[in-house]
């Protein structure tokens, strides 16, 4: 009896130990990145030391200054100016489309729904070049319209699919009982369904925020002047800017760049984890 319990305790200790070791290995790069922000190149090169010699915010202050023309205040401002409207527009347009697919019967619905699902597998790379030609013909290059407009037109099926799944779980009787009192379909959406959809909308919004924030290829293609640069573009440029890269500075900015995602994640982790678990998605 006692031996068995002892065995169980040993087992448990071993489990937690393994969990801690894996967790530390996974998070070590991020932890290392944070401390590298305080180091000089000499401290970084050839050293296994984690902690810096001193905690001076020198690298952060220098890094933030950017290339001398624009500071990172500008790049962060641009990034949010791009990411936040994209996120909100995606939510509005995807909600409308999901509502149509889930709550109405109309001609061609099955085909359109199948098309919407098939688009999940259509790679961005196929559309990139014609979209570029189109946008450049309309004078959209070096503006944020190539990001805003697709968001406003629900171009990412993933979010429609996610919201359809969620709406499917809300009983239709709710809408009908509201309708007896004679309210229109738009009021049903806004007053009855939207409040219930909050968790799903939150998850969808977080993922769109994260993906747009991390996206690099589209920003590289559609934005080409320094004043419009986002953090991703500026960071990539900073590697080429100087003959000798000041890694501490680059790490400081990189750390600041990933910080908003981490803060958002910890503030809303429930929605992240539930969003992935319920909808199933790419990394």
């Amino acid at each position: 009896m006692l031996a068995k319990r002892k065995n169980k305790t040993v087992n448990r200790v071993f489990t937690y130990l393994l969990i801690a070791v894996i967790g530390l290995a996974l998070l070590y790069p991020i932890i290392w990145m944070f401390f590298a922000s305080f180091k000089t190149n000499e401290e970084i090169y050839g050293s296994t030391r984690l902690l810096p010699a001193g905690f001076s915010f020198h690298n952060f202050v220098d890094g933030w200054k950017g290339n001398g023309v624009y500071t990172y205040a500008r790049y962060f401002f641009n990034t949010f100016k791009l990411v936040i409207p994209v996120t909100l527009l995606t939510l509005v347009s995807s909600t409308l489309a999901a509502y149509a697919f889930e709550r109405f019967r109309f001609r061609g619905k099955n085909i359109l729904f199948a098309v919407m699902i098939a688009l999940l597998m259509l790679p961005n790379s196929v559309l990139m070049i014609p979209r570029y030609s189109m946008y450049s013909g309309w004078g959209w290059i070096n503006t944020y319209l190539p990001f805003y407009v697709p968001a406003a037109l629900a171009s990412n099926s993933f979010f429609i699919y996610m919201l359809v799944q969620f709406l499917h779980g809300i009983p239709g009787e709710l809408d009908e009982s509201a309708c007896i009192d004679g309210c229109g379909s738009f009021r049903i959406l806004v007053q009855i369904l939207l409040p219930l959809m909050k968790p799903a909308l939150f998850s969808a919004g977080l993922f769109q925020f994260m993906w747009t924030y991390n996206d690099y290829l589209n920003q590289l293609i559609f934005i080409n002047s320094g004043e419009k640069y986002t953090v991703s573009l500026a960071l990539r440029m900073s590697l080429d800017a100087e003959a000798i890269v000041n890694w501490g500075k680059v790490m400081a900015i990189s750390f600041i760049a990933v910080l908003p995602l981490m803060i958002l994640f910890f503030a809303a982790q429930k929605y992240f984890v539930e969003g992935i678990a319920t909808s199933g998605l790419k990394g």
């Binding site: 894996i22 967790g23 996974l26 991020i30 573009l233 590697l239 890694w247 990933v258 981490m262 994640f265």
Partner: peptide, 22 residues
């Protein structure tokens, strides 16, 4: 939550730069 953190960064430039340095 902690195991999920690396997935937050996807294809971000900041993490690519970190990998390059490490």
């Amino acid at each position: 939550t902690l195991y999920y953190i690396p997935s937050l960064f996807g294809g971000s430039v900041a993490i690519a730069v970190l990998w390059k340095l490490m």
